[in-house]
Nucleic acid binder design. Structure first.
Length: 938
RNA sequence: GGGCGGUUAGCUCAGUGGUUAGAGCGCUUGCUUCACACGCAAGAAGUCACAGGUUCAAAUCCUGUACCGCCCACCA
């Protein structure tokens, strides 16, 4: 290799060019695509597919960075390593984004129609899938792009339909009328998980209902939602409640609407709350619905799907829900039926995607019967077949599985996996209600509203037209869906061919639940599936433990009979400097791409990795990014120094040395390697990378390179520090590569030829360092500690005495055991402490007594004498010594006390006791010397 | 109502049964020293929230308290 001068290398690290170059290279070499090798156990991570709702945000960047680090580490260990990337169609969130765009153009999806709308959805998805992929590249993500999957791809879609069919056949998916959470803005049902509860201060309204046939006798109920009075079908009291016993069996008259409803007894009523009498609104409250089921009460739905009041709301029909509340309250007030209003704080559900207040609504939807799926999913975690990291989330998971409720999976959206259920337009025709889009009705001059399938056909509308122009459909309970993975051609009952597919789509998390196996080819028995499944680690944020992780375990076990992954690693959330969640509206978002452009990918990766521990949230600030950028620059310049000094012959000399600083740095390097490996195995990525940082900056740069510089100037003794300098740099680059892929590759490429290690084409596939315990060298570490201590003490003394920084001062060091080391490092000590001349004496050569013009530093293992001439203030010197003596005495007393404790001696491990004894000896030695010096001062 | 996490230097956070608690930023002082001023050197700065307990030894384990944050839950 040709030597490079320092000036050939830029003075500061320029990431952009380096990043583009190496990513392209890796891609071309095919390093991201693993080879299937049955003799080796693969390492597999399926990437949590980011939502295609726009550009990449810091959360997905966080995920990618952690996963890439794990992936690169394992790949360097020689395992067939698969990181499968993908993206998610994002159901409601995805549809909302495109609908907003349409709104800006002044159109709605309904005017566009389902087919055209879906075309727009695909356009958006394809565009942003590309952007997300590009952004992953910027992060240095080494995912296997040849296996990239989208949740709506044919493969994962077939997996979805197959699962739906299988579960239906087993009775684990059913269609039924239940109280669900309804978002009137998204116009769709939601699962319980998609509802966010917020504490709101509102009012509790006490309303009295007149008793039928009894003048001026009332029963008073309390409610937070007075408008639901319109849907009441009973008043319930606790059977034990003496206050209301006389009311049982009577009829109450609903205010305003005048309907009569029964007063009945039900256990669900808490006599202590409110008045002990509860209005029962089965169509709009889950508890009331249960009461109604028990008591055989009718349900009256008073709302339209957009939360305006429906026809059952009588005079209030057409009003918004809150307008209706206001109007009704006024009417109640007028009639003297509003008894009182109490301020009341309670939690109210809001749509996770649009923050609209949700309405509990009786509706016919598809559900997953989760209990049978939860049982095995609970077991595999309980029995630690799947390990969750950090451990504390195990309890959260188990608790959720124990209290799991059925999962509402149908969504009244257009974007998503269409439910693979069909209804027969011939035999079920008059049971199928259809709501065609308004445009279509206008064209046909038909009235706005619901139509039955058969009626539309009678009016001459063809089946195809109905299918194309249908917004949503409601189907009578008796309608019989045909569930199949592919569109059926004929009704098995009547052979009719007018089949109408269920218009709803599936919860986006339904396809996500299958992700580990659907991306690998299931339901086909593909090579990938056979080799890579079950996967190794599922790495994701703790915020989607229930949404995703729990469901993957349930569905994975159900579909494949195996766990989907062995370990779950949960990371925290990224917050801003003040610990707040980042959001566009707060303006505190750090855009990963902007951060990369400003600081470089490796700096962003380092900032995110370092100091972070599993499951804990972290804050990211520009300050942190700056610090990380500084580290990349430091690295760059350390490398610049090394590369600039490489001379081809000497640098390729095998690393074989007896010099103390060499033995020291190699020992430290191997200890570092051992620690980093152990930390990585425990998923302590933040701590691992921090150790590498410390080693590089402090031990390698501040000490080893500084000493090496002095060695380089000492020509002619046949020794060069270059082999060790290069070897340590090369090895540390490999240690660091999983965290900071680009700069390590760039540096490694320039030093690899000078290193005796294996020399593959890229650091990416170079072996990850392993610790060589033979290299551990306690003597060298102890000796170097002394050298560092000496240099520091001299520098400190110079500062204290305000010695001109440029000036050389005279010094002598008196040492016993360490003398050979100090002799060997004398030039380095002299240069680094600015000492000239430096004399190193052994104890026998005589003490230092009588020299009151000298400053004397007593260290563990050596004494340093600085004859500073007139610069010594004897008074200050005396007080310095006294202070040191006092501090030392405190420590001596502490240890003496400890060593006098028989309990300590009996119970503490012997190496601890020995350590304390050694410390005491050292301290006593220092103390004796300090006292001598004090005496010498006179 | 149940559960979880946090409380460590001015700020942001690591740490974890071993007795002298670390880093980055910030601060003080000095330095354009031939890798790096995105730097170097030297420093100041913490009764590890509080109260008990276990232990030879507690910032670390246990119990309780306070404050902050999060998750779950059908309080009309």
């Amino acid at each position: 290799m040709t030597s490079k001068g320092l000036n050939d290398i830029p003075k500061s690290y320029e990431p952009a060019h380096v990043e583009a170059k190496w990513y392209q290279f890796w891609l071309e070499q095919g390093y991201f695509t693993p080879e299937i090798d049955d003799k080796k156990e693969p390492f597999v991570i399926i990437m949590p597919p980011p939502n295609v709702t726009g550009e990449l945000h810091l959360g997905t960047a966080f995920t990618a960075i952690i996963e890439d680090t794990l992936i690169r580490w394992h790949r360097m260990q020689g395992k067939p390593t698969l990181w499968l990337p993908g993206s998610d169609h994002a159901g409601i969130a995805g549809q909302n984004v495109v609908e907003q765009l349409l709104a800006e153009e002044g159109i709605s999806r309904h005017t566009l129609g389902r087919e055209k709308f879906l075309e727009r959805m695909w356009e958006w998805m394809n565009k942003y899938r590309g952007i997300i992929a590009a952004q992953h590249k910027r992060l240095g993500a080494s995912s296997d792009l040849t296996r990239e999957r989208f949740t709506m791809d044919p493969g994962p879609s077939l997996a979805v339909r197959t699962t739906f069919v299988n579960l239906s056949k087993k009775g684990l998916i059913y269609r039924g009328e239940r109280i669900i959470n309804w978002c009137p803005r998204c116009i769709t049902a939601l699962s319980d998980l998609e509802v966010e509860h917020k504490e709101l201060s509102s009012n509790l309204y006490y309303v009295r209902y007149r008793l039928e046939g009894e003048e001026d006798r009332f029963i008073t109920v309390a409610t937070t939602r007075p408008e639901t009075i319109l849907g009441d079908t009973a008043v319930a009291v606790n059977p034990e409640d003496e206050r209301h016993k006389s009311h049982l069996g009577k009829q109450a008259i609903l205010p305003v609407v005048g309907r009569t409803i029964p007063i009945l007894a039900d256990e669900a009523v808490d006599p202590a709350f409110g008045t002990g009498a509860v209005k029962i609104t089965p169509a709009h409250d889950p508890v009331d619905f249960e009461v109604a089921q028990r008591q055989n009460l009718p349900s009256i739905n008073i709302l339209n799907l957009d939360a305006t009041m429906g026809e059952n709301a009588g005079p209030y029909a057409g009003l918004g829900r809150f307008e209706c509340r206001q109007a009704l309250l006024e009417d109640l007030e007028k009639e003297g039926l509003l008894v009182t209003i109490e301020p009341y704080v309670h939690s109210v559900g809001h749509c996770q995607r649009c923050q609209t207040m949700v309405e509990p609504l009786l509706s016919k939807q598809w559900f997953v019967n989760t209990a049978p799926l939860a049982k095995p999913a609970h077991k595999v975690v309980k029995e630690r077949q799947i390990e969750i990291i950090p451990e504390r989330f195990t309890k959260v998971y188990l608790n959720w599985m124990e209290n799991i409720r059925d999962w509402c999976i149908s969504r009244q959206l257009w974007w998503g996996h269409r439910i693979p259920a069909w209804y027969c337009g011939t035999c079920d025709g008059d049971k199928i209600d259809i709501i065609p889009i308004d445009e279509f009705l206008r064209e046909r001059d038909l009235p706005h509203g619901t139509h039955t399938y058969s009626k539309l056909r009678e009016l001459g509308v063809s089946h195809d037209e109905i299918v194309r122009n249908t917004d949503w459909v409601t189907i009578d309970l008796s309608a019989n869906p045909i569930v199949a993975t592919d569109a059926p051609h004929q009704c098995p009952v009547c052979n009719g061919t007018d089949l109408l597919q269920d218009p709803d789509v599936l919860d986006t998390w339904f396809s996500s639940a299958l992700w580990p196996h659907s991306t690998l080819g299931w339901p086909e028995e593909t090579e990938d599936f056979k080799y890579f499944y079950p996967t190794t680690v599922m790495e994701t944020g703790y915020d989607i433990l229930f949404f995703w992780v729990a469901r993957m375990i349930m569905m994975g076990l159900e579909n494949t009979g195996e766990i989907p992954f062995h370990k779950v690693y949960l990371h925290g959330l990224i917050r801003d400097e003040k610990g707040e969640k980042m959001s566009k509206s707060k303006g505190n978002v750090v855009d990963p791409v902007q951060a990369i452009e400003k600081y470089g990918t490796d700096a962003l990766r380092f900032a995110i990795s370092t100091g972070n521990s599993p499951g804990n949230d972290m804050r990211l600030s520009p300050h942190k990014l700056e610090g990380s950028r500084n580290f990349t620059n430091k690295l760059w310049n350390a490398a610049r120094f090394v590369i600039g000094n490489i001379n081809s012959e000497e640098a390729t000399i095998p690393v074989e040395t007896n010099l103390v600083e060499d033995r020291w740095i190699l020992s430290r390097l191997n200890r570092l390697t051992a620690e980093v490996t152990e930390l990585l195995e425990q998923f302590q990525l933040g701590e691992a990378v921090r150790r590498i940082y410390d080693f590089l900056w402090t031990e390698y740069c501040d000490w080893y390179i500084e000493i090496a510089k002095i060695r380089l100037r000492q020509d002619g003794d046949g020794y060069s520090p270059m082999p060790v300098l290069v070897h340590v740099l090369e090895t540390t680059m490999r240690l660091l590569h999983p965290f900071m892929p680009f700069i390590t590759e760039e540096i490694w490429q320039q030093v690899k030829e000078s290193s005796p290690s294996a020399n593959p084409g890229s650091i990416m596939i170079a072996p990850y360092p392993t610790a060589d315990t033979e290299t551990f060298d306690a003597d060298a570490e102890r000796d170097m500690e002394l050298v560092i201590d000496i240099i520091r003490s001299i520098r400190n003394a110079r500062m204290e005495s305000k010695v001109d920084p440029g000036r050389f001062i005279e010094a002598s060091i008196i040492a016993e055991n360490a003398k050979p080391t100090l002799d060997a490092l004398a030039p380095a000590i002299a240069a680094l402490a600015r000492v000239r001349p430096l004399t190193i004496l052994s104890n026998q050569d005589g003490g230092t007594s009588g020299n009151e013009q000298a400053k004397i530093l007593v260290l563990k293992g050596a004494e340093v004498v600085l004859p500073l001439g007139g610069m010594i203030d004897v008074g200050a010197e005396r007080s310095r010594l006294l202070k040191e003596i006092e501090a030392n005495q405190n420590e001596i007393s502490r240890i003496e006390h400890l060593l006098a404790d028989t309990n300590f001696l009996a119970k503490a491990p012997s190496h601890i006791v020995d350590k304390e004894r050694q410390k005491l000896d050292d301290r006593n030695d220092i103390q004796r010397k300090l006292k001598e010096k004090l005496a010498d001062l006179g």
